[in-house]
Write a protein that binds this DNA or RNA. Structure first.
Lengths: 206, 206
DNA sequence: TATTTGTCACCTAGGTGCGAATAT
DNA sequence: ATATTCGCACCTAGGTGACAAATA
């Protein structure tokens, strides 16, 4: 394709094999666009408060769930790097049921033990971070907190909360989805954030 | 410029004299893009709760301002139409000082009267609606409320609140700014939303 | 017995008007 | 006098753990 590099007219541009699209101004040069072309970089996601998460994890993290929806404690919060500052992303969280077993808390042993097979799992609902969609620069600027996310054990929930089976074990997954039409998805999870959903705290030793 | 209309490769396109940009998928046809090309349409902004605003207006609307910032009552809220659903916009509000006079409230006459020349006005700060930037479809979906906006009389305010001179008359202006690089700005205001900034209510007859 | 549910008092954050005290 | 500042009591919305009652 031929391009008049000096053109300053109002245009939309098509670059072959580019992966990023820009909002362009009336006045721009082809060179300024090419200069902004994305270099591949590795997306990284770091868990915040990992110290706290690990303390709970060592005791067996429990997460209260209620019919009306309960926030998580600790709150899931991550630092993201390696995004394209100009590109739009949607960031979501879902819960992966990581063992198809039912658990119960043994007061004797002060620990969780698995008992029999668990409920079969439907794919988890997605919690879409309310800032979505936003540019990479926004997501990387500060930790991204999922404190508004709520868990429920109500299979018929109509408030958009994340549905779980009580006494089952889950681990949150963070998804970073590129909004360039490719919908490329990058998924991250952290071992220390796994938890067992409960309707009342079992371990009273926190 | 030559374009292979059947191409399905990953590209960025160049259209001359287009005004709208799209996030494109890997697979698309030139025709599908052209079909989405914007038709010019008129942006309109309608005041919400205009009945309430008019009731206050007929008595002389007062708006409390404090050092730490005070929300407006009534809240400014507008319905927007005529945007391009796919285009990004920033929506802001500022305050226009509509009479360079100082006012005082006459208890005798139960009305505001002007007294002498007012303070000279610096250009007002902008309140950027927190949803900005967002697509036209978002702004048009529901009334856009500026309830988080706060007014202050502290000329040294460092919280980003809108600074006003007490006992002066203002009228909010809504700006809809196209985020296509042209930064085209559409401005709207409503007579019935004019008010006098006060540090304490003067008219006790509300 | 093991689990779930609903209720409740408690806490917090933040917005509000009012009136006393102060400032111009 | 007029205008501003400040503190305060009040209200609301929403999140929390505890516990008693209900469920299975």
């Amino acid at each position: 394709m031929e391009i008049d590099k000096s053109s300053k007219r109002r245009l939309i541009i098509l670059c072959i094999d580019c992966e990023l699209l820009f909002v362009m101004s009336n006045n721009f040069s082809i060179d300024s666009i090419l200069a902004k072309r994305p270099r591949k970089s590795l997306i990284r996601v770091f868990l915040q408060s990992s110290h706290l998460w690990r303390r709970f994890h060592s005791l067996g993290t429990e997460m209260i769930v209620t019919k009306s929806g309960r926030r998580m404690f600790p709150t899931l919060s991550v630092l993201i790097s390696g995004l394209d500052p100009m590109k739009n992303y949607v960031v979501t969280v879902d819960l992966e049921c990581i063992e198809l077993k039912r658990f119960r808390y043994s007061f004797h042993q002060s620990k969780w033990i698995s008992t029999g097979p668990g409920e079969s799992e439907l794919p988890s609902r997605m919690f879409v971070h309310p800032d979505s969609p936003a540019r990479g620069s926004h997501w990387m600027r500060a930790p991204v907190s999922f404190d508004k996310m709520k868990l429920t054990n109500n299979q018929l929930d109509s408030n958009g909360h994340i549905i779980v089976n009580s006494m089952h074990k889950y681990r949150p997954r963070v998804h970073v989805i590129e909004q360039d039409g490719s919908q490329t998805r990058h998924t991250f999870s952290f071992e220390e954030t796994e938890f067992i959903a409960v309707t009342a705290y079992q371990n009273h030793r926190y």
